[in-house]
Amino acid sequence: MQKECLLEVSGLKTTFLTENGPVTVVNGVSFQVSAGETLGVVGESGCGKSVTSESILRLLNEKTTRYEGEINYKNRNLLSLTEEEMRSIRGNEISMIFQDPMTSLNPVYTIGDQIAETIMIHQKVGKKAAFAKAVEMLRLTGIPSPEKRVHEYPHELSGGMRQRVMIAIALACQPKLLVADEPTTALDVTIQTQILDLIQDLKQQLDMGVILITHDLGVVAEVCTRVVVMYLGEVVEEAGVEELFENPLHPYTQGLLQSVPQLDGDRSKKLYVIKGAVPSLTNVPKGCRFAPRCNYATDLCRQSEPELMGNRHKVRCWHADTNLQKEGELYVADGS
């Protein structure tokens, strides 16, 4: 039941033009999202996951950013659209919710105004109709007594409520694609479950595609259907969620999965450690970008960079086949 492809990112390269020269933050990222699918993009800080999502909506300052590659949505390359055409897509066809609901709402407008604003920009409706729609959206996101809440200001709401409002704004025009950048990172766990459930629910009701950007592997396992793992601006592995967790092929993915303490893990064991730290993007290692931190790195890895290979399960590693065989060995922590 493969649905049509909604968005196709191919060879996306985003470069920031800084005072110290260009820095490529996203380097040749490709993936697809179909309707009804939740694609997880995971990685640590600085891996380019947020910049990828901002590139899709072209939210970055174009005076200091250079995009290369293609982002195809409905047979149009988003990167070649004019700003005006882009504006008709943002919030209408593709929407985004951000990590921090505290700072992404305007404190001097009521939440009703902010939801209605989106509706009035994209649909030819009057203020009254837009407000009625706003109430309906708030009800859809599970906010109690929405008729009253619609006249409240962001400071009157809790963090979880504010994230619901963000979701209401994002979904007000029934977009085809929702980009959620760390939507639950700033929230408490019990609120996180509520919000994740809500996103899943609405995804089904509206038959949207969702791109979920997160650093939390637990969240990925619970809600995503497919996962892209990023490291230092590149995709290192892509697979279906069960496949990825059961059979991770890239040493980085394996390391990430191992280093998280598990609720049913052995507490007497030391946690697995990926040695070193993420290098700076201005000083990218030669060859495979993960080589300096990898336990399997050979001269080949340090000399030339592997391609992302594979069909359904893609991996960027010279030794992916051997790793697979040695899988058992890796599960012994090196204790460094």
Binding site: Q192, L217, V219, C224
Partner: peptide
């Protein structure tokens, strides 16, 4: 109980 059950587990099969 609620807090424990809310923790996302990195295991999609569970």
């Amino acid at each position: 109980q609620a807090l424990l059950s809310a923790v996302p587990i990195p295991n999609p099969k569970l």
